[in-house]
Design a protein around this nucleic acid. Structure first.
Length: 437
RNA sequence: CGGGGCGUAGCUCAGCCCGGUAGAGCGCUGCCUUCGGGAGGCAGAGGCCGGAGGUUCGAAUCCUCUCGCCCCGACCA
């Protein structure tokens, strides 16, 4: 993409409404614009990051055996009255009345709908287990939205729902998601720690929150220092007992949010106990038959009896992850994207668009990178070098390639890794080879 | 919802206390000089001062109402 034809409205100054660095950088780097409290428009660069994360989340859900669907964002109040949550959910649910005075709502989560749709399609215990998921916009009318996409009212969430014949198999589904979540956060370049968590209004008795440690996190978190190391995620998720053993071994190391602190466990952890702030990027629940019973989901068992499936639900805040990644990966000049979620892999800077030889070299390199399938943002604007460097650093693309008159005369280009600092002079061929790797 | 703050040019803000008809920096447009880390000069464009009502000869400024946004608290992917 040529920057001269793109839509990348960057800001030199920090907008006053943004308090934390991720929000400031998302506005400055032209990723998002606020349109109302807690509601954001996603601009081209931000949308590319969101799509990258969404793709990784989807790949890991598929790998875990979950099946993607898409439910409506606008739902009828009827289903919610059936589960009792229409009243229980409170003012956080955005309620809408249509032209016929029907009560509608913008979905804040989707247990009722998934359970109903699933109930409609299965009759037998042989149809279980299943995990269904979607990646869909949610709306929660937060009392006080803040911190940009970290606590927006409208947000993109991956929500999954598992259906199992009994508690034992439901735990296996839970564990599948547990490992899938660790894999997902590692794949986006983040280190997330699973913590024992409250089950909140959804109910149930087994839950973990996944937190990314960052100074601006909204939760206090406490964990064994071993959680700071990255763990091997090599385990066969299809082997229920091996997976259970793996999960148990991980959870033997203490980790809890401030609501679930355990003084005895902390005492046992001793000097290895770490205290930090965490950004919650995912949460998983097992809640038994709460929704299956309420929504009339049952299947026929092997002996002809009706069985009410055990369920769990599993959420990842996809749009929140964008902010969380920036909180964890930036410097004074801007964002430093992990490769996996970067909007582009390379920003190609033509220092002198007015110089014929320079431009010819930059155009040629741009063409060969495009031909090789490298995602490259080509800064061909008629701007001074300094402005281009500042923009490149701000938007945080992993590789910067600089073409200037000196290099063109010497037959070299300059290549720099964002965040690593050191510049390197190489031949054009070597640069292409490096960037295609 | 309680407490606090703020709405003036695209952005960051000054002007408001003490009413007299709108400013700066950055950005934007044109020209010139520049050109390896957000250059310099000259000339420009751009604002019913969030909205409505009131007081006044006169309101960005004072009063009332209203809408929006931000911060602190209780709640949350």
């Amino acid at each position: 993409m040529r920057l001269s034809r793109y839509f990348l409205p960057v800001l030199k100054e920090t907008p006053g409404e943004a308090q934390i660095v991720s929000h400031q950088l998302m506005l400055r780097a032209g990723l998002i614009r606020q349109t109302a409290a807690g509601i954001y428009a996603w601009l081209p660069l931000g949308l590319r990051v969101l799509k990258k994360i969404e793709g990784i989340v989807r790949a890991e859900q598929d790998r875990a055996g979950a099946v993607e669907v898409l439910m409506p964002a606008i739902q009828s109040a009827e289903l919610w009255k059936q589960s009792g949550r229409y009243d229980a959910y409170g003012p956080e649910m955005l309620r809408i009345t249509d032209r016929h005075d029907r009560e509608m709502l913008f979905s804040p989560t989707a247990e009722e709908l998934f359970t109903t749709i699933f109930a409609n399609g299965v009759r037998s215990y042989r149809d279980l287990p299943r995990i269904l998921y979607q990646i869909q916009w949610k709306f929660r009318d937060e009392i006080r939205p803040r911190f940009g996409v970290m606590r927006g009212r409208e947000f993109l969430m991956k929500d999954a729902y598992s259906f199992d014949i009994d508690l034992a198999t439901a735990r296996h589904s839970y564990n599948r998601m547990f490992i899938a979540y660790l894999r997902t956060f590692a794949a986006v370049g983040m280190h997330a720690i699973p913590m024992r968590a409250d089950t909140g209004p959804i109910g149930g008795d087994l839950s973990h929150e996944f937190h990314i440690v960052a100074t601006t996190g909204e939760s206090g978190v406490f964990y064994h220092e071993r959680w700071e190391q990255s763990r091997s995620l090599a385990v066969d998720a299809d082997d229920a007992s091996a997976l259970q053993a793996y999960v148990d071994a991980l959870n033997a190391d203490y980790a809890a949010t401030d609501e679930k602190r355990d003084p005895a466990a902390e005492a046992a952890t001793g000097a290895s106990l770490k205290e930090a702030r965490g950004i919650e990027v995912g949460q998983i629940f097992y809640f038994g038959t709460k929704y299956s019973a309420a929504m009339g989901l049952s299947v026929q068992g092997p002996g002809g009896e009706q069985i009410v499936p055990h369920m769990g639900s599993y959420g990842i805040g996809v749009s929140r992850l964008v902010g969380a990644i920036i909180e964890a990966s930036h410097d004074k000049d801007g964002i430093i994207w992990p490769e996996a979620v970067a909007p582009y892999r390379v920003v190609l800077i033509n220092l002198r668009p007015d110089d014929v030889a320079c431009t010819a070299a930059a155009d040629a390199l741009y063409a060969s990178l495009e031909a090789a399938g490298v995602e490259v943002l080509y800064d061909d604007r008629d701007e001074r070098g300094g402005a281009k460097f500042a923009t490149a650093d701000l938007i945080g693309v992993p590789w910067q390639v600089v073409i200037g008159p000196k290099g063109v005369a010497a037959g070299t280009v300059e290549i720099k890794r964002r965040g690593a600092g050191a510049k390197e002079e190489t031949t054009v061929a070597a640069a292409v080879e490096r960037l295609c790797r």
